[in-house]
Amino acid sequence: MGTWTWFHKLSSPPHFYRIAGKMIPWFAIPAALLMAYGLYAGLVLAPADYQQGDAFRIIYVHAPAAWLSLMCYSVMAVAAAVGLVWRIKLAHALAAATAPIGASFAFLCLATGSIWGRPMWGTWWTWDARLTSQLILLFLYLGYMALRSAYDDLGKADRASAVLAVVGIVNVPIIHFSVTWWNSLHQGSTVLRKGGPAMPPSMLIPLIACFFGFTFLYAALACVRVRAEVLRRERNAHWLKDLTAPRLGAQ
């Protein structure tokens, strides 16, 4: 089967719904394993930091949450752009499915960062470039979801919110580079940095496991949520009958 026919088949809602459902365990199981190992190793096996002691262990939830909040936004913006240009409902569905996941991790990133900042920096919050731009990211997610819920018509909600998602993408590189473009209280990236990660393997491997675990978790959650979005968009499609017939018969 050629790529194109495969793509077309995938983009038909019933196929997509079924394939997304089949993919869930393939994402959820690695997510559970990697996160269980990564979080446990971060808490127990990794050595304490020579300066920050055990407080540094917050990195194992803070950094993956930060990564996911940025990755989710990028996925959302690209999906929204594809939806706008090619008028693909599934792309809009993916953008809509990604927003609440990204928002929750943007929140987790800010909250754990605040908890980490109090003992180490000496403050819960400060308006430096990194913290401010990350807060804006959370507001972009919330604005996107609020805008969607303001429309009764799904098609209109898709298009209006997609414009916001696409425009907001400028904030993503700003967040990432805020600590190098301007001086800030927040330090630079530990893993994605020139000269390689600034951590020994005993600390790094659990962190990498967490990064991958969180990413797989996103994929699993997105599959579940995107199926819900497909159902909302296909409310009266006849393929749903095959899907729901056994259940209806049981009633």
């Binding site: 930091d49 000496g122 403050t123 400060t126 530990t190 951590m199 600390m203």
Partner: peptide, 18 residues
């Protein structure tokens, strides 16, 4: 009126640092 500590992005176990 306020003093904050800035740390860098490097993490090291105490024994290695020593």
């Amino acid at each position: 009126d306020e003093v904050l500590a800035k740390h860098d992005e490097k993490y090291t176990p105490p024994e290695v640092a020593k």
